[in-house]
Amino acid sequence: MTLGQLVGLVLLFNAMTFGNGPVMIPLLRESLVSGRGVLTTDELLYAFTVARITPGPANSYVASIGYMLFGLPGAALCALAVVVPGYLMLPLQYGYGLLRSARAVSGFTRGLIGASVGLIFAASIEMARGSLTTPGSWIVFVLAIVAATVLRWNTLLVLLVPSAIGLMLSALL
């Protein structure tokens, strides 16, 4: 398999799944692990886990896969392959701006906003299902909610102070 082929696959799967990381994994597994046998299942899962526990976009695991197969150039090109389609946003936003004042479009916007709120909550609930699995994680979650909403701490403190408490709890228990 060449680097060009890998980048082509990443471009294709990314577009097919709208950049949804977890949905892309089975496609990548099918083609890289079962199909061509260039990656092991463990390596693919490692790439996915690394992207989840590191900051930033979760689809950064394509950089990890690129690195495993082709070193730094592979990582850079795979990362670029999931970023470039983002530029489709410009014509979309431009066209939207032109039509904005039309009555039907303001109704459309209200529909979009309502659905966005629902989708954000749906995604939060799915994320909670995956990560709030132990009493310790619940304690950290509740402390951080209080820090963010009641105490209005800044982002870094909201992340670090409850995390540190979680770390101490897990050392004690």
Partner: peptide, 20 residues
């Protein structure tokens, strides 16, 4: 899983409520 991830989730929930 008992430190940064649940703390990050709290930010998500707070932002969701704010946007709602």
């Amino acid at each position: 899983s008992v430190t940064l991830l649940p703390a990050a989730l709290s930010l998500v929930v707070a932002a969701a409520v704010n946007l709602a």
